[in-house]
Amino acid sequence: MATPRMRVDREWLNTNVLQNPGVRSAINQTARRLAPIVQQIALREGDRDYANSVRVETGGTRPGLKSPTRIRRPQARVIIGDEHAMEKEHGTRIYPKKGFLRRAVRQL
């Protein structure tokens, strides 16, 4: 027996979940808890420039382009201002793979 598909009204979802101050607050708190962990790991590895460039950007919404429902969701992001952040995170011939963000998420 197939389970019936549940439909959620987009207006209700937007009002009660996506625009809910509690949801936005929880997203912001998670990003604010993650940023110091990233800084701590970078400092432990001796990368002061990377650690000093960590900041949290709150507010805004994700575009929802990949979502099948195209729902735009709130976001808070940990931004790394170091110009070589991607190379240090994922590794290249010049920079070894450090994975600061990946390791910080695991500790969270």
Rank of each mutant, 00 (worst) to 15 (best):
A42L: 03
V56M: 07
G60K: 02
A42K: 03
R73L: 08
G46T: 09
D82E: 07
G60H: 08
D49H: 05
V78N: 06
T15H: 09
E83K: 15
G64D: 05
R93C: 00
P4W: 04
E11H: 08
R72A: 07
R70Y: 05
A51T: 02
V56H: 07
I79Q: 07
P63D: 15
T15V: 09
K97R: 15
W12G: 01
Q107P: 00
L101K: 05
G81P: 09
G22K: 14
G64A: 04
H84Q: 14
T69N: 13
M86E: 12
T15M: 09
L13C: 10
A104P: 07
Y95H: 15
G60L: 08
D82N: 14
Q40L: 05
N14E: 15
V54T: 05
I41S: 02
A26R: 14
T15Y: 04
N28G: 03
R77F: 01
I71M: 13
Q107T: 03
G81K: 05
F100N: 06
V78W: 10
N28L: 02
P36R: 10
V78E: 06
P68Y: 04
G22C: 00
E11K: 12
R102Y: 05
R103K: 15
R24L: 12
L65R: 13
M86H: 01
K98D: 06
R24F: 02
V105M: 14
R73M: 08
G81A: 04
